[in-house]
Write a protein that binds this DNA or RNA. Structure first.
Lengths: 233, 233
DNA sequence: CGGCCGTTTGAGCTCTGTCAAACTCTGTGG
DNA sequence: CCACAGAGTTTGACAGAGCTCAAACGGCCG
């Protein structure tokens, strides 16, 4: 019974909370559940790598996954962080291309793999599902375009403040306003598109300005409206 | 018969060459043609403006349209140029949002407006059409993500070389290798995400290095592999 | 304990943005 | 036909944001 031990429980691999699957009929949802396969992923493990062939997309039911591209000199550019309820790898899959990003676990995760055939079956048979998928892609596209404008026009200081606020929106704070996602300075730099040292210097400036408090990788928000001003939104 | 004079001819407003409409049945295509409405747009005219409500999307049958966002201090960030065969404004329309870009004509254009209801009808009734649309969005998303990586990691010099190569891919060259799209230095700067003066200086460096030749706004490619090296692709 | 990874701080330098001024080209109106 | 205005282009000078390199420090794990 070893395999049972190594598989997530039904609750942990439940996809009924995913907004994207809401339009499915009972039959379709059963088919999905039958054809998916779920696994644990340890921190640091790679789900798929840039340039590899994808056999399906993934639904994240637990944990946090970093999606990034490898640019000049192997420097990472973080595209987004996926959180429970998000789907990943669907873009390259739909375009019939090799993966153009790498996905790496940064918080112990549970992912359900859904084969390509299941995806195309659902697209072909459920127009509501297609439309949902289309809307997810459009939302990401808007965010990407917004980010291009920011990165092209804003200073590193403004971008860092904005990134902190975006993280706050996507990953809740605890009771003391502390961000519940733990990133290295380098990862922050790779989101902002700057050098690690610049992030470090700016973070301590933010701390001096009483906008945030730092405790190792924990970031506590003290003055959100102040940060918003710095971000120049 | 005044309206006839001001309307594009049937040939000029023909949508049968659009890849996205290939999956339509004859009935669907007829419906599309019946419900579309086509017009001329002079250079400099605005098709829709950031923040406005969209009533449909547009098919570009002739000319060139610049799609841009307005950032800090009203500085434009150019997202892309649309050319004949492209559709525009579909993203905000599908997301049910106000337009988040402005579309302005830079080369005398003919555009066909397709109402929102026609779009949703086609999505609901033709899964192949939905899939095509999804793939267009995914392609744009990939390009946006690639561009984020570039703009975050590359120098202005590298980005300008890359932008020139992208323009070459999208807008053919004439017999003498001259780019068939005429942009101001400021527009180039707003693509690259830099200052107008920087573009001017770098262009003359490229000219000195015998990579390109300049004649007003005409840009002639002399050494494409050299440019590729500069672009660091 | 030693090594490794991540963090921090300092110094120097370069790329690139800003400001200012001159110059070209085009179209308009007297 | 010329003068003028205005937009776009070009060049120079300068400052500073942010990158690189180097070194030191802390924490963690085998």
């Amino acid at each position: 019974m070893r395999s049972v031990v190594n598989r997530p429980t039904p609750e942990e691999s439940d996809l009924s909370g995913f907004k994207i699957f809401k339009p499915l009929s009972e039959d379709e949802f059963n088919k999905l559940n039958y054809e998916k396969s779920c696994s644990f992923y340890k921190k640091g493990s790679v789900i798929y790598r840039e340039g590899s062939r994808l056999t399906g997309f993934y639904c994240l039911t637990k944990g946090i996954v970093k999606i990034y591209k490898t640019g000049i000199d192997g420097k990472e550019q973080i595209i987004r962080f996926a959180k429970p309820g998000d789907i990943i790898a669907y873009r390259s899959l739909l375009s019939n291309e090799l993966a153009c990003t790498t996905a790496k676990v940064i918080d112990e995760a549970i992912l359900c793999h859904v084969p390509y055939q299941t995806l195309t079956y659902l697209i072909d048979n459920n127009t509501k599902f297609s439309l949902h998928l289309l809307q997810i892609a459009c939302k990401e596209l808007k965010e990407a375009n917004d980010y291009i404008t920011d990165i092209a026009q804003k200073t590193v200081r403004e971008r860092l403040a904005e990134v902190l606020l975006i993280l706050k929106e996507n990953f809740d704070l605890d009771a003391s306003n502390t961000l519940q996602i733990s990133l290295t300075r380098e990862e922050l730099a790779n989101m902002v598109g700057t050098a690690t040292e610049s992030v470090i210097r700016l973070l301590s400036e933010f701390k001096q300005d009483r906008l945030i408090e730092l405790n190792g990788r924990k970031i506590k928000f003290l003055d959100i409206s102040g940060l918003t001003k710095v971000a120049n939104i």
